[in-house]
Design a protein around this nucleic acid. Structure first.
Length: 931
RNA sequence: GAUUUCAUCGUACAGUGGUUAGUACAACAGACUCAGGAUCUGUGGGUCGUAGGUUCGAUUCCUACUGAAAUCACCA
């Protein structure tokens, strides 16, 4: 049945791996069963964007870990779902299309094939029959469908869940919107039932958009001129686009938005139940940025319209220290507050602030700028009259866009007040003062007692906050309020290669495309760039009556984990009972770069789909592990200045040299292959080399990002060709803990390869003679085996993938010492190792005479019986120093041990006749006699 | 600045309130070989970041400091 014709003397990984990969594919070894009676386990990798560059050794790290875990769980009897797919919409393919005119679908298809070919060589146990691609119309039809559901939903704050818009309309018709508590736009007007009925269709549509979970709105967005599109907040880093690093500016545009803020509280609370790293949860908490405080009204003095400015603060206790109020330049009342005398200056400032890019604004965060409006407001607590300023350190999008300036207790306010010479009054007794009584620096701690604060004097900060809020609420000029830093997400992209938004417009009113018309497929267009008058690429399509922006990259990835459960379903995005069976992803492995993007959006959509009754779980990913980045280890050579002479690393300090990067593929264990180096580039062809004492040329090394630019990219294909997939898998795990970032250094790979050879030697002599015996193994060998089983199982349970490799090495070394070749030991050992090294174990498993796949065999269980000892040799310490060893049975009572220890000759000698103060017996550990 | 994580042979990682702190690579020596490679055998190498504390006993627990990494950072 199996062809074992190749030589057995050597471990021939190339033949073994090719043979079994083919076997698994033809026998569909990894196809997931639809048997819902078995316990399920869902192991998922973050699916990749198929870039043209292909894989480097960093990519498979997480895939290998999840692959091992999935195999482990299957061997334990779970029905394991372990799929793979592609996040195949995205910018690079589109950029390439703009440059070459080639349709992005074609390049994407090509890239996916490359990826799959590379992945297949590593021996993953993906069920490829479940593959999904976000750019496939059969897939994005459901992305569009989910979008439509969000459009038809509003978030009821009373029930804390999404409900159909129809129920909202019913309420409007009954009683207007005064009693409706909903997550909605801040500028939503209050109207009566009658008013609602009198609204035109367009007006009603506008109102409803303020409630829908996906909606059109004029918003300040991150516009990236270089990419020609808007970006979400998490796609912008330090004022530059995450992709490409282009400048980003603020621009007001009408955009599709996602009302993720509706779920802010649930997204925050939900974190508590998840088995994610603290760091990651903290990042999400920071991003959501909940702050509890109070809104308070400042009436504008001498205002004919009795205008009020509402400020948000977490420190209402400091209200008596307010010496000014600042509003954001974008604040709607900014110009209205300008007195005639100040008007010109205010206009100038607002104009200036508007045109500043996000980057400039952040880069100059420490420089103070602002302008006085000429208006004053009344502090409702003290009745003090304070000036109103406009400054761009106040953000329009957070809170109310109005800040009360308390320079003595806020650093930014302090800087502002100092710069514009506004009064600074200390209101907490801990505030540091100069000798002349001036405030030295802002005191922003929440400890101390209030001073100069009338009714709050003497209270602690906490008490003062509580009292002030209650006072404000009683007096009707303020209320308790929770704010989130989280913003609604911009959902429009002015690009081609994304999901079309399934909406058309009738007289400017957005209407959903009929569900039966989905998928709304991407139209063919002549060029992939914007139209000459700046419209998105889809505006080029003939007869395209639909929305011209497309969805962002995160749309398709926000629910793909659900599609894997039921990838072919044409009736629904996932069958509900199937989704109920598979439920949450039990283990999700991926990079930390998606901490606040993908992982937050996916949680949002999953919460929504739960509310909508489509699935029965709220949180998509129960346990999540962030694998670390694999960095590159660059090789450096040192060239003597102005010459073609190179110096070995040890001697470089004796010369004046410059560093050059050499390709790491010409370097082994830091030794440069000089011939390859000379052939690498013509300019090096006749280079000279100053060698080290050992006659070799050594390179320096440097850890940096793996990148073509540094010639330090290692392709897994090359490693597989040289050592085999099993070695690559073991080595990637052996490099270190999964979560840690670590450099790829091929130096150690020999070690893992040798290990596999040693394993082979347990089965065959170097002459190819079969060594395996059916005889009974001795107790020692069994102990080694079961100790290993226990350790490996424990390690896997806590997702430690590097330690088992070292444990396997110890085990094989020990078995070799013991000359153990018994089947009864080797068979469980193979099953134990199978998740890590699936090819060699499958091969040896069949050579042991098995006909089923080892990957469907049972994972061995540790038997305590083999691990137990019946006696223990105790180290005996006198005052913490080892003096002798004594052996006792494990069940001897400590009292007996104490007696016998004291009676012992050597102990007696050390006691020198004194009686011991204390005697400590730790069972199976140690005995310590204290004198 | 805030939060989180971390610090153990030359390097990368294990490990532990308790005897002599392990594994791999690298280094060194030997066997085999014409030689190299491969293989095998053996050897050396660590005050467990620094300083305190708890304890009979601390590399392990606690505190401070130092250093490193990641994320966030005008969010009122």
């Amino acid at each position: 049945m199996f062809n074992f014709s190749f030589p057995m003397a050597e471990y021939n990984f190339a033949q073994i791996e090719q043979h079994w990969q083919h076997f698994w594919e033809t026998h569909q070894t990894y196809q997931v069963s639809q048997d819902f009676s078995k316990p399920k386990y869902y192991v998922l990798d973050m699916f990749p964007y198929p870039s043209g560059a292909g894989l480097h050794v960093g990519h498979p790290l997480g895939y290998i870990a999840s692959d091992i875990y999935a195999r482990y769980k299957r061997m334990q009897g779970f029905n394991v779902l372990h799929p793979m797919g592609f996040d195949s919409f995205g910018l690079p393919a589109e950029q390439y299309a703009i440059d070459t005119g080639q349709h992005p679908a074609i390049t994407t298809e090509k890239n996916i094939e490359t990826f799959k070919k590379q992945l297949s060589k590593i021996g993953f146990n993906y069920d490829w029959s479940r593959e999904v691609r976000t750019s496939d119309p059969n897939y994005y039809r459901w992305t569009q469908w989910i979008f439509q559901q969000l459009f038809q939903a509003w978030f009821n704050l009373k029930t804390q869940k999404a409900e159909p818009v129809a129920s909202l309309i019913a309420q409007f018709e009954q009683a207007g919107n005064a009693e409706v508590k909903a997550a909605c736009d801040d500028d939503t007007p209050i109207f009566s039932a009658q008013a609602w009925k009198n609204f035109s269709e367009a007006q009603q549509s506008e109102i409803l958009l303020k409630y829908r979970l996906t909606y059109l709105a004029d918003a300040y967005v991150n516009w990236c001129p270089a990419l020609g599109t808007v970006l979400a907040n998490d796609e912008v880093k330090d004022g530059l686009s995450e992709r490409g690093g282009h400048p980003v500016e603020r621009r007001k545009m009408r955009q599709w938005m996602m009302r993720i803020t509706a779920y802010a509280e649930r997204l925050l609370q939900g974190l508590d139940g998840l088995a994610w790293s603290d760091a990651l949860k903290e990042m999400q908490r920071n991003w959501i940025g909940k702050s509890t405080g109070c809104e308070v009204d400042f009436a504008v003095a001498d205002s004919p319209q009795s205008l009020k400015l509402r400020a948000f603060t977490t420190r209402i206790d400091t209200i008596y220290g307010v010496s000014f109020v600042v509003i954001a330049p974008e604040h709607p009342e900014a110009l209205a507050l300008a007195t005639p005398a100040q008007r010109a200056e205010v206009e100038k400032y607002v104009e200036w602030a508007k045109n500043r890019s996000e980057r400039e604004r952040q880069a100059e965060a420490k420089t103070v700028s602002g302008v006085f409006t000429g208006s004053y407001v009344i502090n409702p607590f003290s009745q003090a009259k304070v000036p109103v300023w406009i400054a761009d350190y106040v953000l329009a999008g957070y809170g109310t866009g109005v800040v009360m300036g308390v320079p003595a207790s806020d650093e930014r306010d302090f800087r502002f007040a100092t710069h514009f010479q506004l009064p600074i009054v200390p209101i907490i007794d801990q505030t540091k003062l100069e000798e002349n009584g001036k405030v030295m620096e802002a005191y922003s701690e929440k400890t101390g007692r209030m001073i100069n604060s009338a009714m709050l004097d003497g209270l602690s900060v906490k008490e003062a906050i509580e009292k002030a809020i209650q006072y404000a609420e009683n007096q009707g000029f303020g209320e308790r309020r929770v704010n989130y830093r989280l913003r609604d997400a911009v959902f429009s992209r002015q690009r081609y290669w994304g999901e079309p938004v399934p909406v058309h417009f009738e007289n400017g009113i957005p209407k959903l495309v009929e569900e039966s018309a989905l998928p709304l497929e991407l139209p063919a267009i002549d060029q992939y760039k914007p139209t000459p008058d700046g419209e998105p690429p889809l505006a080029r399509a003939k007869d395209w009556p639909y929305e011209t922006t497309t969805m962002p990259g995160w749309a398709g990835s926000s629910w793909y984990f659900l599609r894997f459960m039921d990838p072919q379903n044409a009736q629904a995005f996932v069958d509900k009972s199937t989704a109920t069976y598979w439920g949450q992803v039990d283990l999700y492995i991926g990079g930390t770069e998606h901490a606040v993007g993908h992982l937050l959006y996916s949680r949002f959509w999953t919460h929504f789909l739960y509310d909508w009754g489509c699935i029965e779980h709220k949180e998509p990913f129960q346990r999540l592990v962030n694998q670390g980045m694999i960095q590159g280890m660059s090789a450096l050579v040192y060239r003597v200045k102005d010459s073609n002479q190179f110096v070995t690393a040890q001697l470089k300090d004796q010369y004046e040299t410059q560093e050059l990067h050499a390709d790491v593929n010409m370097v082994e264990n830091n030794v440069l292959d000089i011939e390859k180096f000379k052939a690498w580039r013509t300019e090096f062809a006749d280079a000279e080399f100053v060698l080290a004492e050992d006659g070799k040329f050594h390179c320096g090394s440097l850890v940096e990002k793996m990148s073509k630019r540094w010639y330090n990219v290692v392709n897994p294909d090359d490693v597989v060709a040289k050592y085999g997939a099993d070695t690559l898998r073991l080595y990637e795990m052996f490099l270190g803990p999964l979560e840690l970032s670590k450099p790829w250094n091929t130096n150690g790979i020999d070690g893992t390869h040798k290990f596999l050879k040693k394993l082979w030697r347990l089965f065959y002599t170097d002459q190819g003679e079969w060594l395996v015996e059916d005889s009974q193994p001795n107790a020692e060998a069994l102990k080694v085996l079961h100790k290993t089983i226990k350790k490996i199982t424990d390690d896997l349970e806590r997702l430690s993938f590097n330690t088992p490799v070292s444990e396997f090495m110890i085990c094989v070394n020990r078995l070799q010492e013991l000359k153990c070749h018994q089947k009864e030991v080797l068979s469980p050992l193979l099953r134990l190792l199978a998740p890590f090294a699936p090819h060699i174990t499958e091969e040896l498993w069949h050579r042991l005479g098995n006909s089923n796949s080892i990957h469907h065999a049972e994972f061995p269980k540790a038997a305590e019986a083999y691990l137990q000892e019946n006696s223990f040799e105790y180290p005996v310490q006198i005052n913490g120093k080892l003096r002798t060893n004594l052996t006792f049975g494990v069940d001897v009572p400590t009292a007996t041990i104490e007696q016998e220890v004291l009676a012992n000759e050597i102990v007696q000698k050390w006691l020198e006749g004194k009686s011991p103060k204390k005697i400590i017996v730790v069972p199976k550990k140690i005995i310590n006699v204290v004198i």
